Amino acid sequence: MAHTFPELVIGGVLVAPFVTYLVAALAVVIVLRPLLQVAGFAKMFSHPAIAQLSLSVTILCLLMLLF
């Protein structure tokens, strides 16, 4: 049995499920960013921007796997 992906319809235009997951991951990262700054996330890595990108990709992948 094939898995059907829910498509979002905005103004009659079908939006790919990936875009929905991307927006959701962006919202999660925006909420987590101040918390990570307080926790000293940037001080733990030599390249904090790459670490944050990796965290964003991880969140995106987890959202895609779970939903």
Results as ranks from 00 to 15, higher is better:
L63K: 06
L36G: 04
A2K: 14
V29P: 00
L35E: 01
I59K: 03
V29M: 13
V28L: 07
I50C: 02
E7I: 14
P34I: 06
A16E: 03
L65N: 08
A27E: 12
S56N: 13
L65W: 06
V28Q: 00
G40R: 07
A51G: 05
Y21V: 08
I10M: 07
H47G: 00
L60Y: 06
L22E: 14
S54E: 12
L32Y: 02
V13Q: 15
L53E: 00
F18R: 10
T58L: 15
M1W: 05
T20V: 04
T4F: 13
I59G: 02
L26W: 10
M64E: 12
V23L: 08
I59A: 09
T58R: 11
V19W: 03
L55N: 10
V28M: 03
L14M: 05
E7S: 14
R33I: 07
V31D: 05
V13P: 01
F45D: 01
L14V: 11
L63S: 08
I10Y: 11
R33Q: 09
H47C: 00
V31C: 12
A42K: 11
M44Y: 02
L35I: 10
S46Q: 04
S46P: 00
I50Y: 05
P6Q: 10
V13M: 12
S56M: 14
G12R: 08
V9F: 09
V57M: 15
V23Y: 12
P34A: 10
P48C: 02
S54K: 13
Y21S: 08
P6Y: 05
V57I: 15
L53Q: 02
V31A: 13
L36W: 01
P34Y: 07
I10R: 10
V29K: 04
M1A: 15
G12S: 13
A49G: 03
L26D: 14
G11H: 04
V57L: 15
L8Y: 04
G40P: 02
T20S: 12
T58I: 15
F18D: 10
T58G: 14
L55M: 13
R33V: 10
P48G: 06
A42C: 09
A27H: 01
V29N: 04
H3F: 15
R33L: 12
G11E: 12
A39F: 07
F5P: 13
L35P: 02
P34D: 05
L62P: 00
I30S: 11
V29F: 08
Y21Q: 09
R33A: 12
L55A: 15
L62R: 03
L8D: 02
I10Q: 07
H3P: 06
V13S: 08
F18A: 11
A27Y: 09
L55V: 14
C61V: 15
Q52P: 00
C61H: 15
V38A: 13
A2M: 08
M64D: 06
L8W: 04
C61K: 15
P48I: 01
G11F: 10
I59C: 14
L8T: 09
Q52V: 02
L32V: 05
R33G: 01
A25G: 06
P48K: 03
